[in-house]
Design a binder for these strands. Structure first.
Lengths: 351, 351
DNA sequence: TCGGCTGAATAGAGCGCTCTCCCATGATCG
DNA sequence: CGATCATGGGAGAGCGCTCTATTCAGCCGA
């Protein structure tokens, strides 16, 4: 921006009308004579005018920006997060295709509205304070929060300050914020039913971190369904939703139960690791061992064999988050609400 | 924000000083009597004041936001990008750990400066126009651009409008913008030297898309080094930087050259695919075949065996981009410049 | 013919900040 | 001891926009 950018005033002068009229044409409010509209539009064209967002925000009290926050539970300790902590956190977040799908869904909803997401990582107390301050300043109109830890204090802080926010997944302890979620129990059930229907008899499961509610519910749903079909006991290993943890868990299960013929993994990333370990041990998939994943992330199809998995419609869920947030921001919705999506079993090659 | 947020005026009244003085304390400009500083700070505390970003931007002409743009070459055709296109593009971007590292490096630099990145995908002409308009509006002070395609018109458009921007990697055709890059040729050279020093004699390479300059240069450097050591001919297969393309390329090479004993892959993702294929064909790594990757992304260590790879210091490069952009924005630097980083061979288990 | 009405355009008051002047005070020095 | 000067604080003019209140035509009916 070398030369001064043209302002409303400039356009008004060029068109021979008042500032207010130009503003009305731009925002399409009230009646403006069509011939004058044309005049104004041509003047805008000629001057190359673009409205100044800051000036507009100042009066409308709306920024057209929302914060997309990935938060952890991070140190209450002072001293600030090191760059390494931040790098590690970021790497972990991006390692799972899940986050990319969230971004995609959010952008899909925001884009037609010409809104944009600001990416924020809130892995430390300091970073969390920055998120809060950012919203208070009015730099963003609200927050979409993906918590990676049940003890994450951010949701409660947002609620306490009355800042518009929507969560991905029901928080561990009740908070007066809207959220979208998945019926994880039903997903677990579907996985169990599929493995049993396939004829698997010695089924094991690699669960997610059990302090994460979603993991626990996937497991509960899975076990309930198994029990209902007369299989009260299922060997279980706890993983950390990472590839490496999936491999380790599988190696352990395989050592104790060499005759297993079916595995339910709490996410696709672990399922991928599981497949690798199984193959290293000479098991064919799905002939010797059937594997069902969870998420239907991109790796489900890039993985070999392609994963049979319980689909979590993350993009749709993320878009719904954005939609709810918009309602809260515009005051169309006061009370927190929740939207729960249904999982769907996608049958491919691994089971 | 139920109740009206307190303004500078409120704080000033509370502290019994003028608005200007409060502003001075907050921004730390000029000398303010320490006792008055204290007075003001306490008043800020009491009122819970947070400066309004829009109002500040309006006068400083700075938003404290920068656009982090991932752009493609996308359709010049009208009709708008479909949600599916956007989803696919986003998925592709997130599939490679590379992008996460860029984000991490950028945030690492911005965070201490209390600046924040707005994530934008510019995969279509329409989306590109939105990026331009966003910058013109002053919603962001500048752009960090990661182009995924040599024909991407965005850099030239940014340069033409005089909008501050810094690119990741030298653009295919000259553009008056600063960029950071890697000495890809030297990276290729290091890979060749390492494989030869290991004693490999039948070496092949899986290159990246050859219309991408970085791929071409990695390949050139690799071939030059091989030639210099008396090996003018190296079988080559072209991949697309994806896991699947790496697997396909390797399968092809293996069919034609079953006795190969060394592979240089143009990135780690393909190297991972290559390792999978090699193992499926009963080759031990590194005993039978040595594999060298490129990037040193997170998969280099999560992969099994851990990858020997040419490290590209993406986080540092991204931070440098942010630094350069800052200089351009603050007018500390007028002429475009370039910063080229040196790759480094990281020896692990695969070669 | 004229008051009352309606629809279209304008005037101008802010939104909450920053920053340039300007002034008061007290220290400094010839 | 009065002129000079640094020092710290205040007044107030905008930044570019939106939006309310207002004016001004033009038209209708009585």
């Amino acid at each position: 921006m070398n030369r001064q950018a043209p302002t409303l005033e400039d356009v008004a002068r060029e068109a021979g009308v008042s500032r207010a009229t130009v503003s009305r044409v731009i925002n399409g409010v009230r009646n403006v004579d069509p011939s004058i509209q044309d005049l104004v539009r041509r003047a805008i064209e000629r001057t190359g005018y673009t409205p100044n967002r800051a000036a507009r925000s100042l009066v409308t009290r709306r920024s057209g920006t929302i914060a997309l926050v990935v938060s952890g539970a991070g140190d209450a300790t002072a001293g600030g997060a090191s760059a390494q902590d931040q790098n590690a956190f970021t790497a972990r977040v991006f390692a799972d295709p899940f986050f990319g799908r969230v971004v995609s869904g959010v952008i899909g909803h925001l884009r037609p509205r010409r809104m944009h997401p600001v990416l924020m990582f809130a892995e430390s107390a300091e970073a969390r304070a920055e998120v809060l301050s950012y919203l208070r300043q009015g730099s963003a109109d609200g927050a979409l929060v993906v918590s990676t830890h049940p003890e994450d204090p951010l949701p409660a802080q947002l609620a306490a300050e009355g800042l518009p926010a929507v969560l991905f997944a029901r928080p561990a302890r009740p908070v007066a914020l809207s959220y979208v979620d998945l019926d994880h129990r039903d997903g677990g059930r579907q996985a169990a039913d599929h493995l049993l229907a396939r004829g698997c008899r010695r089924i094991v499961t690699v669960a997610g971190p059990l302090d994460v509610r979603a993991s626990q519910e996937r497991l509960d749903g899975f076990r309930d369904a198994m029990a209902r079909q007369g299989r009260p006991y299922v060997p279980i290993a706890e993983g950390g939703f990472t590839l490496a943890s999936g491999m380790a868990a599988m190696a352990g299960l395989l050592a104790e139960h060499p005759d297993l013929d079916g595995v339910f993994a709490a996410n696709d990333l672990m399922a991928q690791g599981i497949c690798q370990v199984l193959r290293e041990h000479g098991r064919r998939i799905p002939e010797d061992v059937a594997v069902v994943g969870f998420d239907d992330s991109t790796i489900a199809v890039t993985c070999s064999p392609q994963l049979t998995t319980v689909r979590q419609p993350v993009e749709d869920m993320a878009a719904e988050m954005a939609r709810l947030l918009e309602e809260h921001i515009h005051g169309k919705r006061d009370e927190p609400t929740s939207v729960v999506f249904d999982p769907e079993l996608i049958v491919r090659d691994s089971a």
